[in-house]
Simulated assay, not measured.
Amino acid sequence: MPLTPLDIHNKEFSRSFRGYDEDEVNEFLDQVIKDYESILRENNELKEQLAALKEKLDHFANIEETLSKTIIVAQETADEVKNNSKKEAQLIIKEAEKNADRIINESLAKSRKVALEIEELKKQASIYRTRFRTLLEAQLEMLREEGWDTFEKSAVNE
Score class of each variant (00 low, 15 high):
Glu42Ser: 09
Lys86Glu: 07
Lys47His: 00
Leu46His: 08
Arg131Glu: 15
Gln139Glu: 12
His59Glu: 09
Leu67Met: 09
Lys34Met: 01
Ala100Pro: 01
Asp35Tyr: 08
Glu119Ser: 10
Ser126Cys: 08
Lys11Gly: 02
Leu116Pro: 07
Ala78Phe: 15
Ser85Phe: 04
Asn62Lys: 06
Asp30Val: 02
Lys122Met: 07
Phe151Asp: 10
Ala52Glu: 15
Tyr128Pro: 03
Gln90Leu: 14
Asp101Ser: 06
Asp101Tyr: 04
Gln139Asp: 01
Glu48Gly: 05
Asn44Ala: 08
Ile39Ser: 09
Pro5Val: 03
His9Leu: 12
Ala89Phe: 06
Glu158Met: 02
Asp79Trp: 06
Thr66Val: 08
Asp30Lys: 06
Lys86Ser: 11
Leu57Val: 06
Lys123Ser: 10
Gln75His: 11
Glu117Asp: 13
Thr150Leu: 05
Leu46Trp: 06
Glu76Met: 07
Leu50Tyr: 08
Trp148Tyr: 06
Gln31Asn: 13
Ser126Ile: 05
Trp148Ala: 04
Ile72Gly: 00
Ser16Gly: 12
Ser107Met: 00
Arg102Tyr: 03
Ala100Cys: 12
Leu40Asp: 05
Ile71Glu: 13
Thr150Phe: 07
Tyr20Val: 04
Lys69Met: 15
Leu108Asp: 09
Gln49Thr: 00
Gln75Ala: 06
Glu76Gln: 09
Leu143Ile: 02
Glu12Ala: 03
Met1Cys: 02
Leu6Arg: 15
Ser111Lys: 13
Lys86Gly: 02
Ala61Pro: 00
Glu45Trp: 02
Thr130Ser: 14
Ala96Trp: 00
Ser85Leu: 04
Glu55Lys: 14
Glu119Arg: 14
Lys87Leu: 07
Glu45Met: 06
Glu117Asn: 14
Arg102Ser: 01
Leu135Arg: 10
Ala125Ile: 15
His59Leu: 06
Lys94Asn: 04
Gly19Cys: 11
Ile118Glu: 14
Ala51His: 01
Lys123Gln: 13
Lys34Trp: 01
Lys87Ser: 11
Glu119Pro: 00
Lys113Met: 05
Asn157Tyr: 03
Ile118Pro: 05
Ala52Met: 12
